[in-house]
Amino acid sequence: MTLKAQLKGLDTITAQQMGGVMVQLQPIPGEVPVIQVSIEGREELPIFVTCSDTQILCMCYLWAEAEVQPGRRMEMLETMLDLNPSVPLSSFGRVGDRYVLFGALARNARVEDVAQDIVALSDNALDALDALSEFLK
């Protein structure tokens, strides 16, 4: 099943789970399927949903390497590593030079599960950005 077909109704279900905020889906053109999820009031922190043969990944880009205070980089990395097991459903990671928060689901996950992951990810990302911004320039 294509990612788009699998995620049919994701906007409505995510909106419901967040108490009726507006949620918009937008496909991103490219070699791999990517769907951008924009949540009302958090437009600056969109969630991107993509997939491989085995997984569905929901990602939120937090900040770039260049934004980190060089003197506090190690401390930040350790904090993220320590936080990883505690943050519900989401993990910190890095793709290229961008730090991300992401959640992974089985390739055949239900749209409700993807929505739940997106809601958790959005809340976690906002929270993480607030808490960890002390390490940024």
Binding site: I28, V32, L57, V95, G96, L129
Partner: peptide, 24 residues
Amino acid sequence: SVYRATRSISDTIGSSGSKLLDAR
């Protein structure tokens, strides 16, 4: 997939004229 997706996302955001805001 993750790297390709990231490239598509950067390309799309880059071409639409808006740039990814910094975290702050």
